[in-house]
Structure formats: C-alpha cells, structure tokens
C-alpha cells in the first residue's frame, strides 16, 4: 500500500468528519471499513490532521475490540461467545475452527482468506450456537457442519 495514497484517503475521511477531535472513533471506524484494518500510516495521518498526539490515537486504536492494527483476511469468521451460545457448546465450534483453519483465535490464515475471532453475543440467541462469517449468520451450527461452510467460502459459494 502506498503511503501517500493512504494519507490522502485518510485526509478525505477526516475532512468528512469536519476535522473534529471528538470524532476520532468514528474516523477510525471509517478507515477500518476502507482497509479492513488500521494502517499505521493512516493512524499517523489522523493524529496530524486532528492535532491529537499519536500516542492518544494509538491508545484509542488498541483499546477497542473492533479495531485491528494488522490486516484481516477476506472473510471474518466470528464465533458468538454469548451466554446462550456458550451453554450450547460454542467453545467446541471455536476449537474445530482453530483446528480446521490451523490458526488460533485472533489470527489470519496464511492465504489471507479467513480471520478467526470471537464476538460478544450477536443477539441471535434463539439460533444458538451461531457463527457469523462475512456478515452471514450460520445458525444451529455443529462441528460437523464447519468443513462444508468453509469450503463454500473458499470456492465462492457463500450462504
């Protein structure tokens, strides 16, 4: 990624928010939306544009769960860790996904296809346990159902 390009895009986003310091979180959300993570160049540019010390920008960027400072894979796999999903055995799904994807929670597969994360309750408790992949909810998921779903995403047959 070109530094100048990232900086220009960041400038545009900051401008959209009226260069308002209090919009820092919203600005970072837009950057994350754009790049799927928060590039370092963008964070530095935000600090400069808003005249906020970079240490404060970094603090906010690392405090909140939804921000990632490393690139995420094409598909975000989120295992719901809500209480309803937990009591229905969501931890078994996480284990299976870790085994099948050969990564740990929070990591991205080497082919940049999947990033595996845990999410705090998606509020689809009637469908527990659920996993959300690329925004699609997969209800009543069993360990057994995982390989086929992953295969579908790999080959582009989603949903």
């Amino acid at each position: 990624m070109k530094k100048a390009k990232v900086e220009a895009k960041t400038k545009e986003i900051v401008k959209k928010h009226g260069r308002d310091k209090t919009s820092l979180i919203a600005i970072l959300q837009d950057i994350q939306e754009e790049y799927n993570y928060l590039p370092k160049e963008a964070l530095c540019a935000v600090g400069e544009q808003l005249e906020i010390p970079i240490s404060r920008v970094y603090e906010v960027a690392t405090f909140y769960n939804s921000f990632s400072l490393i690139p995420r894979g094409r598909y975000l796999v989120e295992v719901c860790a809500g209480t309803a999903c937990h009591v229905q055995g969501a931890f078994n799904l996480m284990d299976r996904l870790q085994r099948d994807l050969e990564i740990k929670r929070g990591e991205t597969t080497p082919d940049n296809m999947f990033t595996l994360e845990e999410v705090r309750c998606l509020g689809c408790c009637s469908l527990a346990p659920v996993v959300r992949i690329d925004g699609n909810i997969h209800p009543y998921l069993t360990q057994d159902g995982i390989p086929k779903i992953l295969r579908n995403y790999k080959t582009g047959v989603t949903k």
């Binding site: 979180i25 970072l28 909140y64 769960n65």
Partner: peptide, 8 residues
Amino acid sequence: ISKGAGAF
C-alpha cells in the same frame, strides 16, 4: 448517533 467500537 455515535457508534461504539467494541468495549463492554
């Protein structure tokens, strides 16, 4: 409206 960023 302000969107949270993932912090209980």
